[in-house]
């Protein structure tokens, strides 16, 4: 009964998925949206499974989103916080993961500042590895929840024009989105100052624009990225004021997009830096729906991976 289709053991990045895999995750997530609207927001699908949240970078929304997702599926969850952990005492990433694995978890969700660390974990770990953001590489669940939001609005995830504005260079969200939309055959424009939008991204299939009005023209989706001052983005343009003048989204610029266009942002938003205060609260803005969808998408990923592919060898 039922067709078995998803065959990935890990979620390392959108790059590793086929368009069919993406469709499967989105369809599964659509079914999970309903569970979060119930009085009793819990199903027993992952009862007895253990999920470890292994976060080496600060994160509130992604970590809590994974936490809620795991709990709504009845999985047990451990939050491993690097700032109070033995890493401070000099333990290596490998030893930390091996120690955690000795407790037989099923899925490890990792966020790490080193690109490729989730892939590295798969070389020795027995659990399913989920990438919750690795360096400047990928943030697959964010791109998937963005895609789910678009699918809910446009009833399809194909044939769309997506404009991504901001610090593309340092953004794993942008990378995952560009890869996802190239796979789905969508048109992607990336917009920002040349220092933050290198031409190399054209190799990934995105079109580079340095003028925001040209870039968002006829777009279905305008996705704003945060100015990541903690990653040194401030060194890439003269001042926030100048950045805002050229690359912030406001009502006037937003009008260049299609009439039905929606505004998205992975958060946290810097009001009146990259995004106009009133536009962020308007009915064009899907920022909060993105957060809600994050739970459904992460439930779908945890459900589909399950983490049973490789039983520990005793």
């Amino acid at each position: 009964m039922g067709d078995y289709i998803f065959s990935q053991n890990h979620l390392l990045g959108i790059d590793h998925l086929s368009d069919k895999d993406i469709d499967t995750i989105l369809e599964t997530a659509e079914s999970f949206v309903e569970i979060s609207t119930r009085d009793v927001k819990k199903v027993p699908a992952l009862k007895g499974k253990t999920v470890v949240n292994l976060f080496f970078e600060n994160s509130t929304r992604t970590r809590s989103s994974f936490e809620i997702a795991a709990k709504r599926l009845s999985a047990d969850l451990i939050n491993f916080n690097s700032s109070v952990s033995s890493l401070k005492k000099g333990e290596s990433l490998r030893d930390t993961v091996l120690t955690l694995e000795a407790m037989n978890p099923n899925i490890i969700v990792i966020r790490h500042s080193a690109s490729g660390s989730p892939l590295y974990l798969t070389t020795f770990a027995k659990s399913s590895i989920v990438n919750a953001g690795d360096g400047f590489h990928e943030h697959p669940t964010q791109a998937l929840l963005d895609a789910l939001t678009m699918k809910q609005v446009f009833k399809t995830i194909r044939g769309l024009r997506v404009a991504i504005v901001g610090d593309i260079l340092h953004s794993r969200v942008a990378r995952s989105n560009i890869i996802l939309h190239s796979k789905m055959g969508n048109e992607v424009s990336i917009i920002g100052p040349p220092s933050l939008v290198p031409r190399e991204f054209e190799k990934m299939g995105a079109k580079v624009h340095y003028n925001i009005e040209d870039g968002v023209k006829n777009a279905d989706v305008v996705m704003m990225l945060r100015v990541q001052s903690e990653r040194g983005a401030g060194n890439y343009f003269p001042s926030i004021r100048e950045y805002r003048k050229h690359f912030a989204i406001n009502r006037k610029v937003f009008k260049c997009a299609k009439k039905s266009a929606i505004l998205m942002h992975p958060g946290p938003i810097n009001r009146d830096v990259e995004i106009d205060n009133t536009l962020a609260d308007s009915d064009k803005s899907y920022i909060l729906q993105q957060v809600t969808n994050g739970i459904a998408v992460r439930m779908a990923v945890l459900y589909l991976l399950k983490g049973d592919f490789n039983e520990p060898i005793n």
Partner: peptide, 23 residues
């Protein structure tokens, strides 16, 4: 009603069964 998430054999499958909508 989709009962997939309440099945008693979820742990037995190699891959997870498709979830359909509950409405």
């Amino acid at each position: 009603l989709d009962i997939t998430l309440f099945r008693d054999d979820l742990h037995k499958h190699e891959q997870q069964p498709v979830i359909r909508k509950t409405e």
